[in-house]
């Protein structure tokens, strides 16, 4: 009994030591998480090497590929000496060559310089004036049939000025005056001076 117990105790001790030597389950989970983190960090490091020139080169290559695909849909005229698809393909081939060089060049130059960061929010803040202008211009185009060139133009200038400039009652008044005077003047020059028929818009024509 004593022998058994001694043997069994020794076995138990060995098991305990083995168990203790064994990394805990939580540790294994942590370790796998760590390697995942490492892998992610490696991936981020790789991504960081992809600067905006690399992204730009990839976009140009994709767009070039799309155009190349479209050249197969150009009707084949039997009588012509130089097919209509030849010149676009020559250009696309050149574009492919140059963009590939650009891609390799961009991969060599490494990540973008710091200071241009800030994620999406930073990007929006950096280009907010341009975004406002494009946004209002898009709105102007979408509403042109309804508002016409005169009202649409005045609204476009007023909204753009308000977005780009300081917001105060005095400035709003100045912006409104600038918008009305400048657009009415230009509209009159083109309509009455140059006899160009500018879009009236449904609202204006209803009046």
């Amino acid at each position: 009994m004593a022998g058994y117990s001694k043997e069994s105790r020794r076995l138990q001790t060995r098991k305990l030591i083995a168990k203790l030597a064994e990394p805990p389950r939580s540790y294994l989970v942590q370790r796998s998480k760590a390697s995942l983190l490492d892998r992610s960090l490696e991936r981020i490091a790789l991504m960081a090497k992809i600067n905006r020139d690399t992204i730009c080169a990839i976009i140009i290559l994709l767009a070039g590929g799309f155009f190349f695909w479209a050249t197969f849909y150009i009707p084949d005229m039997q009588y012509e000496s130089l097919g209509s698809e030849v010149w676009p393909r020559v250009i696309l081939f050149l574009l492919f060559l140059l963009t590939t060089c650009y891609l390799f060049q961009s991969l060599k130059q490494g990540p973008d310089e710091a200071g241009e960061g800030g994620g999406l929010k930073g990007w929006i803040i950096r280009y907010q004036n341009a975004l406002w202008c494009y946004g209002f211009f898009l709105l102007f185009l979408l509403t042109l049939d309804y508002l016409g060139m005169l009202i649409g133009g005045i609204l476009f200038v007023f909204l753009t000025l308000t977005a780009l400039g300081d917001r105060s009652p005095r400035n709003h008044a100045i912006h409104a005056a600038v918008a009305v005077i400048s657009i009415t003047f230009m509209w009159s020059v083109f309509t009455y001076g140059l006899k160009v028929i500018l879009p009236q818009g449904e609202i204006f024509s209803a009046w």
Binding site: F137, L144, M149, L161, L164, G165, A179, M186, V196, L198
Partner: peptide, 24 residues
């Protein structure tokens, strides 16, 4: 200020471009 000029000129560009072919 530049922003005043930019917005007005942008609108002017629009009218000018439309006048080319009377096309949106």
């Amino acid at each position: 200020p530049m922003y005043l000029l930019a917005a007005v000129i942008l609108a002017y560009c629009t009218i000018g471009v439309f006048a080319l072919e009377n096309s949106t």
